[in-house]
Simulated assay, not measured.
Amino acid sequence: MSGQNGSAVYVYAVVAADTDLPEGLDPVGDGAELVVIDHGELGAVVSDIGLDRPLGKRDDLLRHERVVNTLARETTVLPMQFGGVVSDDQAVVDELLGENHDYFAWALRQLEGCRQFVVQGRYDADELVGQIVADDPRLSELSESIRGADPDATYYERIRLGEAISGQVERIRGDDAVHARRALEPFAVAVATKDVVEEDGAVNVSVLVHRDRVSDFEQAVDALGDEWADRVNLRLIGPVAPYDFLPEPVDPESVETGAEG
């Protein structure tokens, strides 16, 4: 049994029972081996990990992501958050698969045949700011008035210009997020617009796509990239583990009976 002699069991994901693991997966923990522990309709993808080995290193997170994302390309998967550890194989059955069996089985049915993709874009900052200033006569005049002037003498004017440009960037970013969502929704099961983290970030949209529509979806992303080619660098990531679309049961009874929600 795993999880003995100073080790525990690290959990990556829940999948359907009898799932075959892809080759070449590199688990968290040196020398570990990935296996699937089955219980009922479910399987848990796990590996042993030493109790004396602290988690949290960047390499651990990257290995976790690679495992769950590779699984997501091959099969329907419910990914676990990074760092999930239980005591042994029996705890995987009792505390994870057994206790949550009906919900996990139901959630896998909701995601069957679907893949998550992420569409991210970054602005050409110089092009964007230049266009914002050129399109607004007041900003053009203010920008021209401080060009080459003493920064100390034009301190407040520079602040006004920066705030005005920042406000316009936020407006454009909001409009672009709406446009991207509308362009991709016809090919998606679900769409989630997420916050942009980078200062030059344009869009960050997660999209759940059925495998039968992946080609159409990719063409839609290409078309959006062509439309925005002069000001946004668009990138398609995926398939990845569907963290953004893990189903939440609306009616507990529907999960217990196996009814689709």
Rank of each mutant, 00 (worst) to 15 (best):
M1Q: 11
S2N: 11
S2L: 15
Q4H: 04
N5M: 10
V11D: 10
V15T: 11
A16Q: 02
E23R: 15
D30P: 02
D30Q: 02
D30T: 04
D30Y: 01
D30A: 11
G31C: 04
E33W: 13
E33H: 10
V35Q: 09
V35G: 09
G43C: 02
A44H: 09
A44P: 09
A44N: 13
R53W: 00
K57F: 03
K57C: 00
R58P: 04
D59V: 09
R63D: 07
R63N: 11
E65Q: 14
N69P: 12
A72D: 06
E74Q: 14
V77Q: 09
L78V: 07
G83P: 09
S87K: 10
S87M: 14
D88H: 10
D89Y: 11
A91K: 10
V93T: 11
G98E: 07
E99F: 05
D102H: 14
F104R: 06
R109M: 06
L111K: 06
L111R: 07
E112Q: 02
E112C: 09
R115M: 09
Q116A: 01
Q120Y: 00
Y123G: 04
A125Q: 09
D126N: 04
E127W: 04
L128W: 06
G130A: 03
D136C: 03
P137D: 12
P137I: 12
S143F: 12
P151I: 09
E157P: 01
I159E: 12
R160C: 07
A164G: 13
S166W: 10
E170M: 06
R173Y: 03
G174N: 14
D175I: 05
D175Q: 15
D176K: 07
R182Y: 05
A183V: 07
A183K: 13
E185D: 13
A188C: 14
V196N: 04
E199S: 14
G201P: 09
G201I: 05
D212F: 13
D212T: 15
D216E: 12
Q219V: 14
A223R: 13
W228N: 01
D230L: 02
D230P: 00
P242Y: 03
P252F: 00
V255E: 01
G258F: 03
G258Q: 02
G258K: 06
